[in-house]
């Protein structure tokens, strides 16, 4: 078989092309493959490749979920591992860390409503439930409240970002972190993923750093007002030491 015929036979066999595309670096598959031609654009939409791209969920498995590497690269505050004894004011998520995310200097591509990161699953297999746990340090001690969000299943980056952002964008010093399930389902029956938020009840107002509208997606959906129905106050230490 001549070289050219080998190439043409390869590229005209969708099954083979799909295999090849599945092994491209994720960025190439996402950004470049759909731009090559209409056939490749259609191929990138096959269920198999949509799973590779974190658009469609993979079946649940017993092993630890794998974080979306592209999102982890571009949204570091949401994917940084947090040690149990981390001081609350050193959590990775804050208005400051949001402002220094890799894309913050040219937010236009991120801000537009159709930007595909919003549809991307944060991990594979994706979290199906999310706990939001909030801890407030005031003069009379710490108060906690938490709620389980069930209407986020499977969790996509647009939801996680929209839910977390208002917590970081506050008049008080506020921080958040995302606690990822480490694979051992038994030890964490509460939720696949926890968004932990801390802030201080300050007597001085407007201490916090505010985020301007550049950081809010055009498709921003305010979950805080719409859907977060808080449960009862809980004073047990849930997820972080109050040191």
């Amino acid at each position: 078989m001549s070289p050219t015929r080998a190439r043409d036979a390869t590229t005209s066999t969708p099954e083979l092309l799909e295999l090849i595309l599945a092994h491209l670096p994720m960025r190439d598959l996402l950004v470049t493959a759909p731009l090559v031609c209409k056939t490749w654009q259609a191929l990138a939409l096959t269920p198999a490749l949509q799973r590779v791209l974190f658009f469609e969920p993979v079946p649940l498995s017993s092993s630890a979920p794998m974080q979306n590497p592209l999102l982890a690269e571009l949204f570091p505050p949401f994917f940084t591992a947090v040690a149990q004894d981390t001081h609350w004011a050193r959590l990775p998520g804050s208005a400051r860390s949001i402002k220094s995310m890799p894309w913050s200097k040219s937010p236009a591509a991120f801000k537009r409503a159709e930007a595909s990161w919003r549809r991307m699953l944060v991990a594979q297999p994706p979290p199906l439930t999310m706990i939001v746990a909030e801890k407030c340090y005031g003069q009379s001690g710490a108060a906690e409240r938490r709620t389980a969000l069930t209407d986020i299943s499977p969790l996509r980056m647009g939801s996680l970002y929209d839910i977390a952002l208002p917590f970081a964008d506050a008049d008080t010093d506020s921080f958040f972190c995302v606690l990822w399930r480490d694979g051992d389902v038994e030890t964490d029956s509460e939720g696949d993923i926890t968004l932990a938020v801390t802030y201080t009840e300050s007597t001085r107002q407007r201490r916090g750093l505010r985020l301007d509208e550049r950081f809010y997606s055009d498709a921003f959906r305010d979950h805080a007002n719409l859907e977060i129905a808080w449960g009862e106050m809980d004073h047990t230490s849930l997820w972080l030491n109050a040191n």
């Binding site: 599945a22 092994h23 670096p25 799973r51 092993s63 630890a64 979920p65």
Partner: peptide, 18 residues
């Protein structure tokens, strides 16, 4: 396995795509 884990529904192992 060229098919990779995402193409094989029977698979349960998790491998980094890199």
């Amino acid at each position: 396995d060229v098919r990779g884990r995402y193409l094989s529904t029977a698979s349960t192992t998790v491998e980094s795509p890199s």
